[in-house]
Amino acid sequence: MNCDEARGLIQCYLDNELDELNTLDLLKHLEACARCPELLDSLMSQDRLLKQSALAQEVNSGPVRAKVLTLLRAHASQPSRFPFHLTRLRRFVAVASLAAIGVLVWLFGPEFKSFHEKAYAAIVADHADHCSYEETKDARSSRTELDRLVAQYGKLSNTPDLTPFGYDEPHAFVCKIEEIQYLHLIYYRQKGQPLSVFMRLTDASSESLQVALRRRDRFVIASAWKSGAELFVVSSLADQETSDIARAIVARL
């Protein structure tokens, strides 16, 4: 692990959100590194100072507590607006409605239950959040680090080259989508919006190249998988161009 990757994990470590394996890797790096421990210490000091200062602030909760209790007791003393049997009827209707919706979803909407629906929303949010051009346009990861990460997360021998599509070298970091770690590559170009590639290894195996397109907000998502690896390409480009880029990457898996 090098410093760039360690810095990508330090926040999760600081917040007790890092899994055991990455924690061990990070601690190993921190033992050997001269700069990263200083960064971790400074962030811990910052958080500690914030928490101590926040908790040291005096809050007089007495008046609002008394007011809330008075209101609640007055509310609780009022007879229910509905007779008991009607309340039970409303509960029965609510439960029956939920059951009916559940059956309908089970019968007609299996895609709504898919993990991927949540993942699509999350990766678009992540893409939109991270891909502010002004903020990150000068950020680039080293070639060695890129190649190591794409090998780990996509079994690729080297980083996908999108220069034929007009994109520069990407910037990489590891992120969590729905509790699953992905490698997030952000590609930039001189004109136009950035493009994101999310990749990870998966148990699903398919020797044939498969690409699916969908739109969310103003973005196109091409999801593609092959040979135990899955990736999402998120862009503001046309459907066909996004699909071509996804196919170009997956073809090398």
Partner: peptide
């Protein structure tokens, strides 16, 4: 321009008081 945490020189909040951070 710092994207990753610590892309700039690490900064330890010495001399910074609680009210400053709040």
């Amino acid at each position: 321009d710092g994207h990753l945490l610590g892309a700039n020189v690490p900064f330890t909040p010495r001399g910074i008081e609680g009210r400053d951070i709040l």
